[in-house]
Amino acid sequence: MSKTTTTTLWRPTGPEELALVEASGWREWPPRLPEQPIFYPVLNEDYAIRIARDWNVPASGVGYVTRFEVESDFLTRYPVRQAGGETILELWVPAEELDEFNTHIVGTIDVVREFR
């Protein structure tokens, strides 16, 4: 039996979204809101830290950085988008595909940093 190859992704998040992740047993991301047509996981921790610290903290008083693994073969459908500098890399997952995306998460979604 071959081991599934995974890719590590990060997601900066605020307290409301994190509460929904916790309610799922740390297994899935909640559905997007109507004004959120895209789910944006990022490809490196440094970029996630910057968003959590510089955006989530001013917006909600706390910012979290989460880390999770997704089946690499599944992720090939989402091109890597460069949203700024060389390390500002993210995936754009359409909201209507998030349920399927969640089924390809391997293990749990873990909080690795917290900023206040």
Rank of each mutant, 00 (worst) to 15 (best):
S2D: 09
T4N: 05
T6H: 02
T6L: 02
T6P: 01
T6K: 04
T6I: 01
T6W: 02
T7F: 01
T7L: 09
T8E: 06
L9P: 01
L9S: 05
T13G: 03
G14N: 13
P15N: 07
E17F: 00
L18W: 15
A19P: 05
L20A: 13
L20T: 03
A23T: 08
A23C: 04
A23H: 05
S24A: 05
S24N: 05
G25I: 12
G25K: 07
W26F: 14
W26N: 15
R27I: 05
W29G: 02
P30F: 09
P31Q: 12
P34Y: 00
P34C: 00
Q36H: 14
Q36D: 13
P37G: 05
I38M: 11
I38K: 05
F39R: 01
Y40P: 00
N44T: 09
N44R: 10
E45L: 10
E45S: 13
E45H: 15
E45T: 04
E45N: 06
A48Q: 02
A48F: 04
R50H: 14
R50M: 12
R50S: 13
A52E: 10
D54E: 14
N56C: 15
V57N: 06
S60D: 11
S60I: 00
V62N: 06
Y64T: 06
V65K: 04
T66Q: 08
R67I: 01
V70K: 07
E71D: 15
E71T: 11
E71Q: 12
S72A: 15
S72T: 15
F74M: 08
L75H: 08
T76S: 11
Y78I: 05
P79H: 06
Q82T: 14
A83T: 11
T87I: 08
L89Y: 04
E90T: 10
L91H: 05
L91N: 03
L91S: 03
V93F: 13
V93Q: 09
E96F: 12
E96H: 15
E96D: 15
E96S: 13
E97T: 10
L98K: 10
L98M: 13
L98E: 09
E100T: 15
F101G: 04
F101Y: 15
N102A: 03
T103C: 04
H104F: 12
I105W: 06
T108Q: 15
T108D: 13
V112M: 05
V112K: 01
E114C: 14
E114H: 09
F115G: 06
R116P: 09
R116M: 02
